[in-house]
Nucleic acid binder design. Structure first.
Lengths: 329, 329
DNA sequence: CTGAAAGCGCTAACAA
DNA sequence: TTGTTAGCGCTTTCAG
């Protein structure tokens, strides 16, 4: 594979000049530069990234470590990050931690070893992994979930959104409202449950553990939880569901138990999936600004890469309740 | 940041010995090795990836360039690739070409420059990009779409699946069957259309261009196409739809036109989305083995990385028709 | 089994 | 403006 020396030789200049020409430095004679460029083209020269990165002690790549590639919420974040990064000439590598602290740790190690310029992370909840990054002062932005560490964060005001959604269900005349949320320890799962309880308390209702369930952020776990919840004699007549994958499980459970969405059991779910308006009645949702989360996170990261002395910031974006038929009798 | 020299110094050995110990070479005194390892741990030593890659002239990373991160079909492929890569100690970086030849080209350049060990690619259809890779003998596996170039491929027998799905619609008594597929030039889009025509011909029906439409592989384009198709006086009474994002658009169009799914317009769509069984009636689909595509692709890639002289293979996996209510009157 | 030393390809002082 | 040269951190001969 052709090296910069081959290019230089072919163009009859030194490697230094070739390097300068290839990198568009203005301090090189246009005629020479042209010769270098055409030599490079003829040889099909592609710079050796590792060599360049080693020498420069920096790379133009960002690592984006997310907890679930198959969750549209996170892929939207990915697009946001990518669009910003592309625009300033950075590449982004997407890593899937799969909600697994060990995988997260492995990818953080890789990010450190490859000396990426910065990391966008949706943390799985274990602080020690993140310390690896902060100890090395690797620029870091946390998305979706807060971090105890000193870092920029881009979050969603999920607790108040959950409260608002639950209040909406109450105002629609639902009386025994349940909640299906994610695993304990995942902040967004806890926040959604907390917001749900906030709303019940605000309307002077008792909150009962009998009506709250936790499961993985997936359809199957939510299906079991919903079956469980709705098989009680005094079953809930409405449900707040913590994400769209879980909503699939809940709707399956409803169908299995022959309960009508809306009429028998009102439902509001987090995340506005493309199919939400296709079910009958259409699903009410809490829409999160995922793309913007990614965009803001990438902008913060680029800013910090440029100036590491910036103060840490926390940006909280708002989710919006979209009411459709599933939350009306 | 601590280098291997720091580790060596702290352990009181040469860098060579430190390197050997760190890499688990058997030719090093256990006592020294232990000293090196603990020195590394104390210093929080992380190897410098670029330096190692430069020296070794190889990396343990795979690039996976897919045409749409937000399409669950491709993210499933990603999981398949990742699972086998992880198992053998490779990292995979996910790049999103967005069905855009230029972006694809940019990512291929990055892959070459970073000297990745191999590439899994769902091509956007332009041969020159791929030549960049083959010219450099970078191990390459194409997924989902065939390549003119010499490379391993993992495909789905999408044409015969389309034929089978269309035949199914015919057998269910639908008479004027239409097809909404992706852009011309994308092989899978063309194949699905071809399979659709195969079925019509086999049952002695005329194929009419009036009943076929193309759009981007997205909901909005498919929505327009469906509105257009179904607004004709002699409208289709069934539709074969080329992917699940498009299915969303088609179902929205049905709802807008007050046409009942199944009864008025039978539908079979490619890709078994999680929500497919939630709509009423449940959606009949052609389920593609996306995860397996990724798995097989990664296995082929690893094999080729190990031995570049292997003959090129094409693996064709089968899609399966899952009939549900949307294709019955 | 261990160490000294070369060199991967590139960029950035420093000189000219 | 151009060339010479050092060296980024690592692995790997080659001697010992």
């Amino acid at each position: 594979m052709a090296t910069i020396n081959d290019v230089a030789a072919k163009a009859g200049v030194s490697t230094a000049t070739a390097s300068r020409a290839l990198n568009g430095k203005s301090t090189v004679d246009p005629a020479l530069a042209a010769r270098v460029l055409s030599a490079a083209a003829e040889l099909g020269y592609q710079p050796n990234g590792p060599a360049r990165n080693l020498r420069r002690q920096e790379t133009a790549v960002l690592a984006l470590i997310i907890s679930d590639v198959e969750n549209p919420f996170f892929t939207s974040i990915a697009r946001g990050v990518e669009d910003v990064a592309q625009a300033v000439g950075y590449s982004v590598v997407l890593c899937n931690s799969d909600e697994n602290p060990e995988k997260e740790r492995r990818y953080i190690d890789v990010a450190i070893q490859e000396r990426v310029a910065g990391v966008v992370l949706s943390p799985t909840g274990t602080a020690p992994n993140v310390d690896l990054l902060t100890a090395r002062r690797t620029p870091l932005v946390a998305v979706d979930r807060p971090l105890p560490a000193a870092a920029d964060m881009v979050l969603v005001d999920t607790r108040s959104a959950a409260k608002q959604a639950t209040t909406h269900l109450i105002s629609q005349g639902y009386d025994r409202i349940g909640c299906i949320t994610g695993p304990a320890g995942i902040q967004t799962a806890d926040d959604r449950l907390a917001g749900y309880k906030d709303a019940l308390r605000a309307s002077k209702r008792r909150t009962s553990a009998r009506f709250a369930r936790r499961a993985e952020f997936r359809a199957d776990g939510a299906f079991e939880a919903a079956i469980d919840l709705l098989s009680q004699p005094d079953r809930p007549d409405a449900l707040l569901v913590a994400n769209s994958a879980m909503a699939v499980g809940v709707l399956e459970a409803l169908s299995k138990l022959d309960l009508r969405l809306g009429a028998d059991v009102g439902v509001v779910a987090f995340d506005d999936a493309p199919w939400a308006s296709l079910v009958d009645p259409p699903l009410s949702v809490v829409s999160q600004p995922a793309y913007d989360i990614g965009k803001v996170a990438a902008q913060l990261l680029m800013a910090r890469i440029a100036d590491s002395s910036l103060p840490y910031t926390t940006t909280t974006l708002n989710a919006t309740l979209i009411t459709r038929g599933s939350s009306t009798r």
